[in-house]
Design a protein around this nucleic acid. Structure first.
Lengths: 332, 332
DNA sequence: ACACTCTTGTGAAGCGGTTCACTGAACCGT
DNA sequence: ACGGTTCAGTGAACCGCTTCACAAGAGTGT
């Protein structure tokens, strides 16, 4: 059995100081340079390291940042989570990653559990940004929202979805598409997600014939939804609200023997690393995931460290044209 | 400002019991049915929920399972992490996911940090399964290893890499390949990873001409490595030690204008969901990720709950043939 | 020499639970 | 009626660290 870990009292004893002094010394406050050195030496000697749990209980701070994802089925959200986790590590913080499975009720429950865990801050990709509990939550800990805006957050990285949707739909329109299916994820149990609203507005403006369908989470779900969509009287293009969903369309097209973009054009929304590898490459709206990660990490770190300035970073999309959208020859 | 959370003492006061009794009651021990009900009611009334941090300090248990990944750059490991995280949630546990970035030193540091965090158990995909610190760690908390075997673990889900390698190399050989490049990840800072050893052994047995190269982590790294590999006197096939790496080969082939499998055959090792979507589909060795997730979650739950039986689950691979390996016509 | 502030360091009270050792009452067979 | 078990519940000591209020000594200006 490995020797029990050293406690702060043992270090105190070893240096002839009080535990309080040791506690201060190790955090570089209130003590002379000289004792600081002495304490450090003794701590190293004993292999002492402060117990994070006890520290958390006493100080109310944990060094952890909660990361609440809408659904990790989505590959892009996976990338985001990995990136954020990594970014936080560089700031000496852990990420506690939780997955709401696209379920708003679960999102609420998990958010509250994270608060109880005393995370120092919360990064969230809200499924239901309009839900009431966010306001309450924001009062008890710094929250950074990614994607959609939540009132009361300590910071936000919002996507200019209006521009993103415009970019996508104008591109499709420019190439002659008029009848377009929009495939969004079922995670919109909240039917009026801001992004979805933009779709109908823009479609109206551009005179497009839009048909919105939702796909269950995950590749299999997206494939099934796409299969159904493409089996009937199919549109000339499918605009997917996540590259992950577009992958499902590729799979369905394969099953049905349809060629992309010959028989149907596909447009994504994310730019996941894999999108460039498909053939044809997926034309998509690029949200600069690295920039989002950086911004989110910066915002939450600042907020958790007490820097209270409430900031909002607006993320602008760009069109990443590959080969999955073709020009329509005869009007559909 | 939201009212401070109720503490156990308030519940005690409300019910006229001692804090100890409340503590017992809420965990369903040592008290009569009747008081249990009373306590539950009062707790609900006050919105009381035990503080996880205080609980952890007092009891030494947190409900968290650490998940230490070799490198989350690898998409397959991402899937694994998400799956495990989800599986643990179903058992009322959190996963604390950490990423060693393919660095053995970091792996050691993180493992120790997780122990300090008082995780109830640790699931690890070891980068360096032979490292000495594992033994010590295994004594202070239950560890489940995935992939390679570690001595002293509470459970293991090991991959029969010998079979996996055999499957892959025999397949390539059967189709006429003799000169084969093996692309492994740089995460093998420990040069003699078990899996790598099998490669040379099997190559010998099958009379293959093997050339081993390592790729840096991530798609970009793999692409660069593959680019170099395919620029010179190229082999007839590339066997990648992860589907992620194979994706890099696809990218490099695209850059170089090489066709797969016309100019070069590619073989993966994982079966990531995206592998079926590429064209041609990636022929790979399938490790049944769902099964691995189930096994790992089962093992760690059992171990963390005190079920001390040390079990070892051997994962068998199957060949998933798609279209990225062609028959060689003239001997290379 | 005086009142004053600054710097270092101390003691003790928490943080919010869990758990161990123990007590009184009820129940048992005889 | 009596020792011996159970059962339900209590008190107090932790778990290991932080932090508040305060004290002793050193330094300062007049």
């Amino acid at each position: 059995m490995p020797r029990k870990r050293a406690t702060i009292r043992e270090v105190a004893q070893a240096t002839g100081l009080s535990p309080a002094a040791v506690s201060y010394a190790l955090r570089g406050m209130q003590v002379s340079e000289e004792t600081m050195e002495r304490v450090r030496a003794a701590a190293a000697e004993l292999g002492y390291e402060a117990d994070p749990i006890a520290r958390a209980l006493a100080s109310g701070r944990t060094g952890m940042i909660g990361l609440l994802c809408g659904s990790l089925e989505d590959l892009w959200q996976q990338s985001l989570a990995v990136g954020i986790s990594r970014g936080l590590r560089e700031k000496d913080r852990y990420a506690l990653i939780l997955d709401a499975f696209g379920d708003p009720a679960r999102e609420r429950a998990l958010a509250q559990q994270l608060r109880d865990q005393r995370v120092d801050g919360l990064i969230v990709q809200p499924i239901d940004p309009a839900a009431a509990f966010w306001a309450e939550l924001c009062e008890s800990l710094p929250v950074v929202a990614i994607g959609d805006s939540i009132t009361g957050t300590a910071g936000e990285v919002v996507f200019d979805n209006r521009s993103g949707v415009t970019l996508a739909l104008e591109h499709l329109r420019a190439l002659g598409h008029r009848r377009i299916a929009v495939l969004t994820s079922t995670q919109a149990s909240t039917p009026d997600r801001p992004a979805d609203v933009h779709v109908t507005a823009e479609a109206d403006r551009l005179g497009l014939d839009i048909q919105v369908a939702t796909a269950p989470l995950g590749l299999a779900g997206a494939t099934a939804a796409a299969h159904e969509l493409l089996s009937g009287d199919k549109p000339s293009a499918v605009f997917c609200f996540a590259d992950s969903i577009a992958y499902g369309v590729y799979a369905a097209a394969q099953e049905l023997g349809l060629s992309i973009p010959g028989d149907v054009s596909v447009m994504g929304y994310d730019d996941h690393p894999m999108s460039g590898l498909l053939s044809p490459g997926l034309t998509t709206v690029d949200w600069d995931i690295a920039g989002i990660v950086r911004a989110a990490v910066r915002l939450i770190s600042a907020a958790a460290d007490g820097g209270a300035r409430r900031r909002r970073v607006m993320q602008k999309p760009t069109l990443r044209e590959r080969g999955s959208v073709a020009r329509v020859t005869e009007p559909s």
